[in-house]
Write a protein that binds this DNA or RNA. Structure first.
Length: 908
RNA sequence: GCCGGGGUGGCGGAAUGGUAGACGCAACGGACUUAAAAUCCGUUGGGCCCAACGGCCCGUGCGGGUUCGAGUCCCGCCCUCGGUACCA
């Protein structure tokens, strides 16, 4: 510190931050003991754990982590037992793909990336209990992921109890109630059980990418029907895959959202995803056949208007209905739609297509026959894959009817001025026999009653949610604890033999092919025989060769943090009960991108675990909060491609980062004109800013403060490196006013002035309220506003100084710890009790209130808070400017809101 | 298309139905300095009146409404960012 600039304004943040990070680590300041004093209240605050990528963090990543850290520190000071852990979601495609491309084992890259990321997290002073850190790829962890899978496999959903139960219970029931059960073969029994298990194998259409040798999730397929990675063709293909019966929980996944404190938009997204829909099944009989075709409709009231039926091209009864004359055209249509990807089928603004089967079904309402068509606007995956088409009340059906000239009957009377086509509004039922004259809701009920009476249908509720495709043909995932016998029968790996470790392999690439029909050969099919084959009770079994999807590990990690070292149990019940009750995690922060899948999958597993008695709450995440994105300017060249933001300058040669928000800037990159817009910060838009740069120049206390000061936590807001200086000035000012140039403390034992004491207590109250409601930007503003009072003093009274440091500590812990220790404290301030505002200092002697005349402010007056309304109004009226506006007018009304405002309403 | 979030100074933002623009950035002026940096003090939504003190008018995307009083509540639009997409 002997540069040519004298050390006056700069505080030694690098030394301070290094010192305290080392101190916290070596003294395990933030370790949450395995056994805590359970008489104290608890606060479990969790971040959605990250995928350890190789490129490191940008300043957008830690936004949520800083927020949870502030709350963790605040709650510790308030006397809570705080559980604040961090881990890594490390299985998955990127590591595997990197491994394939560079020939490095994914475990090596993963470990290296985790290491890098932990260092980055530690360098911003996050107060995690690192003793609880783990990765989903740790054998000790995925052993329990496999264990949960066994529970899923060995359970079924009891519709009567609306709860999962051990499969043995179902077997007992069947043995008792079904006289044929005991005479069935094992395979026959298993076929029945498989229809009930929560984990089961089924032939399902999947996104199969032969070039990558794996199935892909829908999100991994582009709109052109190609793989996001590598742009290879993807085909819809039926493959035998593991599925999880999440649909059994559809109702509870929908209903239990009522009980959680989540942002409404997120709840809504989950509800939409579950897609609960009330209506009826209606059976249409086929003439001269015993077969019936069942449709689902939300509008049973419109049955009389069903003028034709449409089946999905894949519907199993298409063959039965198709006449010989139509067979060719039907088959051609089916082949065509099969070839098109589902995404193509859903492309909008496309004219409806379809072909008649030549077959007919009977409309049960009036026993007349209606033609049956197939069309790809009907999806096999929803409802029954068949609809009754009611063009009069459905836009899609109307459109189809227009194209193919099919009859249209209105069954709801539209208003006289209605000029549209299909009518979806309210009205009275017409053309519908016994339903005529009813309102739609009544007609629905009446129609369902009639269907049930006549045996031609029933009321029902269906869901859009589909079962969860749970296998991947990849190496870098959890192996299934499943074995296949020589006859193909399934046997589970005994719990005592868990974990099933991933075998060491040199070549973990999936088998790839150009042939769309090539069978999937997952990497594990090339695992050593010693791994692939297992002998149990004298029988040689082959292991399941698929692995679990990346979501698996993140479905329950929050439970393992509670008891991460437990070798005998997933989590000890009494610890789970303490940390999870009464309503799960107290605060869960993460990005909206996980609004649906992760949160839905985790809720599903949690409910299964609850049903089976392993956890005590019905929901895992009591309170959820989504942090906003950090945006940054994106510069695009004339081709629309993003260019490195750091290479962009304006017409005067200023770097773009300094003038991004100035008007009339013409930006160029290497001489080429570029346009500016705002986009989510990240590598792909080439606008990432590394936290390391900020740490280096200003320190991480400044980084933390700036990220919180930018705006509300849940809002997306643009990063502006230029603005950082504001909060940095504040911290330097704090330092300068506490520590003299010679390093001495500018602290006195004087009693604070009354004015200072009042301001201090007001600040305590503001900051405390703001922490409670996660309004960190205004908490910082309150602290900044308090500073000038200290600047005015030569020395700061110790009592004031200590409180101020404690208020600042959650936001800027390093500089606060340093000042705290300079004040002579030997312990960390992490567990110092939180300051409380003293009511005596919060009451004001005088308050300033506004005086309005007819709602317009005309004066401010000083009054005593205890002044009576009459006094206040009198003072208000006597004000010169107010009097001017009252002059010669009649006062009609006098409104006084104590401490706020006087409004005098006058006539003309 | 449907569903949801959001539009407040040059910029980020603040405001339990009660004085719109706290706090910060930028800009401008001043103090200190040989000078610069840093620091400190002040001004800063727009328009108008005043020598000054001070005062008036307009202003929270647009148009209506409720209210003594609306950035905030209600109705109808526009723009923007997300989610979703033939879900019967």
């Amino acid at each position: 510190m002997n540069s040519r600039f004298p050390v006056m304004s700069d505080y030694p943040f690098k030394e301070i931050e290094r010192k305290w990070q080392q101190f916290w680590e070596s003294s395990k300041t933030f370790r949450t003991p395995v056994e805590v004093d359970t008489s104290k209240p608890k606060f479990y605050v969790l971040d959605m754990f990250p995928y350890p990528s190789g490129v490191g963090l940008h300043v957008g990543h830690p936004l949520g982590y800083i927020a949870t850290d502030i709350l963790a520190r605040y709650k510790r000071a308030r006397g809570y037992n705080v559980l604040h852990p961090m881990g890594f979601d490390a299985f998955g495609l990127p590591a595997e793909q990197f491994a394939v491309e560079h020939g490095v084992h994914p475990r090596i890259t993963t470990e290296k990336n985790i290491d890098t990321m932990m260092n980055q997290l530690k360098s911003i002073g996050l107060s995690y209990d690192w003793d609880r850190q783990f990765s989903t790829t740790d054998v000790d962890y995925y052993r329990w992921t496999q264990w949960i899978f066994l529970k899923l496999y060995n359970s079924y959903y009891d519709q009567d109890e609306t709860s999962a139960r051990p499969i043995q219970h179902l077997i007992d029931q069947l043995t008792e109630s079904d006289p044929d059960w005991s005479s069935k073969s094992d395979a026959e029994k298993e076929a029945v059980l498989s229809d009930h298990r929560l984990a089961y194998i089924a032939d399902v259409p999947v996104n199969w990418c032969p070039a990558l040798g794996t199935v892909l999730a829908n999100e991994e397929v582009t709109h052109e029907g190609r793989s996001e990675r590598g742009n290879h063709p993807v085909y819809k293909r039926a493959l035998r895959q593991w599925m999880l019966r999440i649909t059994a929980y559809a109702d509870r996944l929908d209903k239990d959202l009522e009980d959680v404190d989540w942002p409404e938009p997120i709840k809504l997204m989950q509800r939409n995803w579950v897609g609960r829909s009330q209506g009826a099944y209606i059976d249409f009989s086929i003439p001269d056949s015993d077969e019936k075709i069942r449709v689902f409709t939300t509008r049973p009231d419109t049955l009389f208007g069903a003028t034709y039926m449409v089946l999905a091209p894949e519907h199993p009864l298409v063959d039965v209905l198709t006449t010989d004359e139509n067979r060719d055209v039907v088959n051609r249509y089916r082949t065509e739609s099969e070839r098109r990807t589902e995404i193509d089928r859903m492309t909008e603004s496309k004219q409806k297509t379809g072909v008649p089967t030549g077959g007919f079904v009977i409309n049960p309402a009036h026993s007349e026959s209606i033609p049956v068509w197939i069309a790809d606007y009907v999806l096999m995956g929803y409802g029954t894959g068949a609809i009754m088409a009611v063009p009069g009340q459905d836009e899609r059906d109307w459109e189809f009817a227009e194209v193919f000239d099919l009859p249209i009957i209105r069954t709801v009377q539209p208003p006289n001025d209605f000029a549209g086509k299909a009518f979806l509004g309210e009205g009275r039922v017409i053309n519908s026999g016994f339903l005529d004259g009813l309102e739609i809701d009544e007609a629905k009920k009446a129609a369902i009653a009639w269907l049930e009476e006549t045996g031609s249908g029933e009321g029902t509720t269906i869901y859009k949610l589909r079962d969860w495709l749970f296998s991947r043909q990849r190496y870098w995932g959890e192996p299934f604890p499943i074995l296949y016998g020589p006859d193909g029968s399934i046997r589970t790996v005994p719990e005592t033999d868990l974990p099933v470790e991933l075998p060491e392999m040199d070549d973990f690439r999936p088998a790839v092919s150009d042939d769309p029909d090539a069978p999937p050969r997952p990497p594990l099919s090339r695992a050593p025989e010693s791994w692939r084959y297992v002998e149990l009770d004298g029988v040689r079994y082959e292991r399941e060769l698929n692995t679990m999807p990346q979501w698996a590990g993140s479905c329950w990690y929050y439970l393992r943090f509670i008891d991460n070292k437990n070798a005998d149990q997933l989590v000890a019940p009494e610890k789970e009960a303490y940390w999870m009750s009464p309503s799960g995690i107290d605060l869960y922060i993460g990005g909206v991108e996980h609004a649906v899948l992760h949160l839905l999958y985790a809720r599903f597993w949690h409910k299964v675990l609850m049903d089976l008695g392993h956890v005590s709450t019905k929901e895992p995440f009591g309170k959820l909060f989504n942090q906003g994105y950090i945006l940054a300017p994106v510069y695009r060249d004339e081709r629309g491609l993003a260019v490195e933001a750091t290479d962009v300058v304006d017409q005067d040669g200023h770097p773009a980062v300094e003038v991004q928000d100035q008007p009339n800037r013409l930006f160029t990159c290497n001489g080429q004109p570029v346009s500016q817009e705002y986009g989510k910060m990240g590598k792909s838009l080439k606008n990432a800013v590394s936290p390391d740069e900020i740490n280096d120049e200003y320190g991480c206390d400044t980084l933390r403060l700036y990220e919180m000061y930018m705006g509300p936590l849940d809002a997306s807001k643009p990063w502006s490196t230029r603005d950082i200086i504001g909060v940095n000035r504040f911290l330097r000012r704090v330092w300068r006013n506490f520590v003299g140039e010679d390093g001495s403390l500018l602290i006195s034992t004087d009693a604070p002035s009354d004015e200072l004491e009042r301001a201090l207590h007001k600040t305590i109250q503001r900051v405390t309220d703001d922490y409670e409601r996660m309004s960190f930007n205004t908490a910082i503003a309150a602290l900044i506003e308090f500073m000038p009072l200290l600047v005015a003093l030569n020395t700061i009274p110790r009592t004031v100084a200590e409180v101020f440091i404690l208020l600042l500590a959650p936001l800027a812990p390093h500089v606060s710890e340093e000042l705290w220790s300079k004040l002579g404290h030997e312990e960390s301030l992490a567990y110092e009790p939180w300051p409380t505002a003293d009511e005596r200092f919060l009451v004001e002697d005088t308050v300033t209130i506004a005086v309005q005349v007819n709602g317009r402010v005309r004066a401010s007056i000083q009054i005593s808070p205890s002044a009576t309304e009459a006094d206040v109004v009198a003072i208000a009226k006597s004000n010169e400017n107010v009097a001017r506006f009252l002059d010669g007018k009649e006062i009609k009304r006098e409104i006084y809101v104590p401490g706020r405002i006087v409004n005098l309403v006058v006539g003309e």
